[in-house]
Amino acid sequence: MSTTGADLEGDIHMLATIKYLPSTLPLVLPYVRAIQEESSTDPNCVRYEILVYPPTDSLVVVESYKSKAAIDAHIAGPAHTKYWEECEKYIVEKDWKFYSKYS
C-alpha cells in the first residue's frame, strides 16, 4: 500500500473511501458519476467503479490507471475539479490508498 502511488510501477489501483454529511450522498453521486463518465473515455483508465452504502452516506471508488501520471491527469480533469468545487463541503472523512497488482 502507498499513500501517493508515486513509489508504484505498472498499473496503479486506488481505493478512495469517502464519508459525507448525513443525507448528502444523493447530492454528491451525480458529480462522482460525471468523473466515472470522463474516465470511461480515458485510454489510461483500466477501471472505475463506484460502490455505495447509502445508510452511511459513504462511498468507495475503485480505480485503476496505467501509471501515476495517468492518475495525476485524471485528478486534474474537469469533472474531478467540478466535484471538489461542489462536493468538498459535504465530506466528513476521506482516505485514499494506492496499490499495485501482486503477480
Rank of each mutant, 00 (worst) to 15 (best):
I18F: 11
D72R: 10
K66W: 08
I91F: 07
A70P: 07
V62R: 05
I12N: 00
A69F: 10
L29R: 07
V46W: 03
A73W: 10
M14Q: 09
H80Y: 06
A79I: 07
A79Y: 04
H13A: 12
V92N: 06
W84D: 03
R33G: 07
E63H: 08
P55H: 09
Y20R: 06
E63D: 05
W96E: 03
Q36C: 05
I12A: 01
G10A: 05
A73D: 08
W96Y: 10
P26V: 06
E38H: 14
S40N: 15
L29G: 06
D11M: 06
A79W: 04
E38Q: 15
Y90G: 03
R47A: 07
V28M: 00
V32L: 02
E88I: 10
P54N: 03
T81F: 09
A70F: 12
L29Q: 03
T56I: 12
I35Y: 01
T24A: 03
A76Q: 14
S2T: 14
G5H: 05
K94E: 10
K97N: 11
Y53W: 00
Y83S: 01
K68T: 08
Y65E: 02
P43G: 02
S103C: 09
T24I: 09
L29V: 14
V28R: 01
K101N: 13
G5L: 00
G10R: 08
K68M: 07
K94R: 08
T17L: 06
K19P: 06
V62C: 05
H74W: 09
E9P: 12
V92M: 05
Y90S: 04
L29Y: 04
P54F: 06
M1L: 12
S23P: 10
E93S: 14
P22K: 15
K66A: 04
G77D: 00
C87N: 07
D95N: 14
D7F: 11
E93H: 14
V52A: 07
I71Q: 00
D95Y: 04
Y99F: 15
P26L: 03
L59A: 11
I18Y: 05
M1H: 13
E49Q: 15
K101M: 12
I71F: 15
R33P: 02
I12M: 01
V61D: 00
T24C: 04
P43R: 06
E9H: 15
P22A: 09
E38K: 11
P54Y: 05
L25G: 03
K68A: 09
T17N: 12
S40I: 09
G77A: 13
K94Y: 00
Y83I: 02
T3Q: 11
E85L: 05
E86K: 13
A69N: 14
K66H: 14
L51A: 11
I50H: 04
A16C: 11
E86D: 08
L27S: 10
I18M: 03
I75V: 14
L25C: 08
T24Y: 04
L29T: 12
D57T: 09
K82V: 11
T56V: 13
V92D: 05
F98C: 02
V52L: 03
